[in-house]
Structures are given as structure tokens and as C-alpha cells.
Amino acid sequence: MRILPGLLSALFLASPAYSRCGGSFDGFVQDLKSEAAGRGHDTEAVDAFFQGVRQDAQVLKADRAQGVFQKPFIEFSRHLISQNRIDRGRAMASRHAAVFDRIEAEYGVSRGVLLAFWAFETDYGGYQGDFNTRNALVTLAHDCRRPELFRPQIFAAIELYERGGFDPQRTTGAWAGEIGMVQMLPRDILENGVDADGDGQVSLRTSAPDALVSGAKMLSGLGWQPGQPWLQEVKVPGQMDWSLSGPGRHRPVSEWQTMGVKARSGNLPGGNMPASLILPQGHEGPAFLAFPNFDVYFEWNQSFVYVLTAAYFATRLEGAAIYDAGNPQPGLSGPQMKQLQSLLQARGHDVGEIDGILGAGTRAAVQAEQARLSLAADAWPTVELLNRL
């Protein structure tokens, strides 16, 4: 499900070693072998690891076919969240209550957060992917789109192989190289794998305790604040400075309250807690306050619509009501979104790839142009904005 997978690996900076890509696939593999030997890996183990490696065209196809992320939040969230997933999530919470109690005590990660990832990544472990993990990683490292993300994972997989925790011929997972119930990349497993069931092995594919506790440890390492909230639905006033909204634009909760932002149910956290106002489909659609833990989600996945849906689903699993969808203005079609991105890019905005996805760069550019044109600067692109541009 991840659009830019990589947890800890996503934090790696590109280096000349990681930027080598393309060219002959066989030559690329020989280059990997040389680098692995240079890193101190046993040459016989390296040869065995790469024996039979092949380029997987289906991995490249999957990497380029992620149209689901073009859907707006309301449609995307309704696509992923069903009553069946909610019921199963609550059943899993009951079945593994002792594990979640341990996680909350040791790492401070609420059970709903991990249940949501478990549901979205593998449908509670039911489908973990059948791509050969080694082939997927080598294929994506050879491809020149994001070699800095995937090349380090190959050497981590070699280390797992040397430790007996990876079979290059049989280990399978998602197309982007993630393994197990909550989909962790090899380096993440090295850094955060936990033998939670005490059987002497870290088994993320077959052991729910291992997978869940490992995921919690990873989130903790990424900066999760124990016992803190991550997202809460709110009601917004009819008029306010919408340019203040957006992920990462933190203000104390008390300031948002002064501007007329209210909890839809219950109470908001203490007045000094920083929060950002999230309006996924503009000021006439759903509204949320996102707290610092929400930012940690972007280390798991860089898709805004996926992150918000996962964070919201976590609140649903812990008893929150279905969000108020409001009455947002119609959004843009895929071709219209690409046209908008091209126009924004021509005006000097960095929107990244022209892909029709309303990502962080496109949202920031939309908001800037809305403010310039005296439109409601809520980062939701409309036909009116497209026409004005």
C-alpha cells in the first residue's frame, strides 16, 4: 500500500554509492556483489544470496500503477474502511489484548494505531504479498527512480540472510520489498525486530506478537510520543484564515480554539499542545486537528491521503464517530489535476512529479496560488482555481 516505502531507509541521504543505477542488470548485480564484499560480507554468502536473482517486470509495473492515491480523502477512506474491517480490528484487539497492553506500557503506542496499519498493509496478516523480496529490492535499486531508498535494503537483506532470518529464494512480501504483517523493510527488521513471543526468532510473517511489537518499536524510534493523541475531528467556523491550515503548520490548541475551532465530540487536548488544522477537501469538507504524533505517520508512508486515512481509522477503532463529510466543492479529475500541476510548475512551484496526485508539494502550491488570487486558501484545488490559472 505504501507509495514511497521505507521507514528508516527513507531517512537515508543519497550518496554516490546509492545513486548507481540502470545499465546492464548483470553488471549492476556484479557491482552490488563488489560493494557487499567491501562492506565485509562473506563472499560465499554474497554469491549464494544473489544466485538466480532476476529483474521483476511486475514490480516495476506495480511501482508505476498507483492510481488509487489520486482519490480524494472521502472516496479513499470509504474505499479502505469497511464495517468488516472495523469488526475484525476490534476482534483482533481483544484476541491480542495482552500484546497491546505490553505495547502501550512499553512504547506508548495506542492499539488503534497498530491495528490500522495491520489492516491496511496486509488485511490483518491475510495477504502479505507474493513477490520475491530479494528480486523486488534489486529491481527497484536498479531502476533509477529511487535507488537511494532501495539499495541500502539489499545489504540489510544480506545481513538478515547471514543471520538466518532471510531466504533469498523463498522470502516473499510486497512489491516494494516489505515483509510481514505490518510490512517492514529489511533494515527496519534489523533495527527494530523483536522476538515478542519468546520462540527465539523474529517472525514477522507468522507471529502477530512479533509483528506488532516490532512495529511499535519502530514507531517509537521514529519519534512517537508515548500516550499522546495523533488526530481528532473538529468543527470549523464559516470564516477564518484558511491559509493557516495544512500539515506541519502547528499552533497551540488554544489558538485554534480562539479562532473558533471546536471538537466535534469530547474535549480537545490541553491548550499548549501544538496542532495543525487538516482540511483534506477544503474548508467545506471534513476537518481534523493533527498533533505531533501525526507527523510520525509520514515516516511510514509519504502519501497524504493514506496517512490521514490510517490515522482516522485508528481513531475509529478506538470509538470515534464517522467523520462529518460536509459538502466540499467538487475536486479535479486525474487529467485536470495533471494540468493544474503543470500550470503550478510553470509558475515556479515545486510540485514534484506530474502524477495527478494531490501530494504535499501540490497542496502547498495550490494554497499559495489561492492566497494570491484571493480565494479561500484551504489547499483544495477546484475547477475555479484551474480556470483562474
Rank of each mutant, 00 (worst) to 15 (best):
C21T: 14
S82P: 03
S214M: 01
I103G: 12
H283R: 13
G326N: 10
A91Y: 13
W230H: 08
L385P: 05
D197R: 09
W224A: 04
A65K: 11
L385R: 10
P280M: 03
L32D: 11
A216S: 11
T258N: 15
L114D: 05
L389N: 12
V68H: 08
H250E: 06
N272W: 13
P335R: 14
V234R: 08
R316N: 02
W300S: 00
M92A: 07
L375H: 03
A176K: 14
A311P: 03
K71Y: 06
P5M: 04
L375Y: 04
V99N: 10
D123H: 12
G129N: 04
G334L: 14
E35R: 15
Q329K: 15
G23I: 04
G198S: 11
H142G: 02
L244N: 04
W242N: 01
F50V: 01
P269I: 11
V29M: 11
A17T: 01
R170D: 03
V253A: 04
M181F: 11
A97V: 02
G52W: 14
V366W: 14
S276L: 13
A321P: 02
S34T: 12
T139I: 01
D355P: 10
L7P: 02
F166K: 09
P226F: 05
D199G: 07
L231G: 05
R205W: 12
G221K: 10
Q225G: 02
E284Y: 09
S203D: 15
S254M: 14
A196Y: 10
L222K: 01
E106T: 13
D31A: 13
F288Q: 05
G356R: 15
H142A: 04
R54I: 09
M92H: 13
Y124S: 02
R347P: 06
P147I: 15
Y107Q: 07
D199W: 13
F304V: 12
A321S: 12
H250Y: 14
G23Y: 09
L332A: 09
M1Q: 02
H250V: 07
A45P: 01
F166I: 03
A208T: 10
A377V: 00
L80F: 07
G27V: 06
K235H: 13
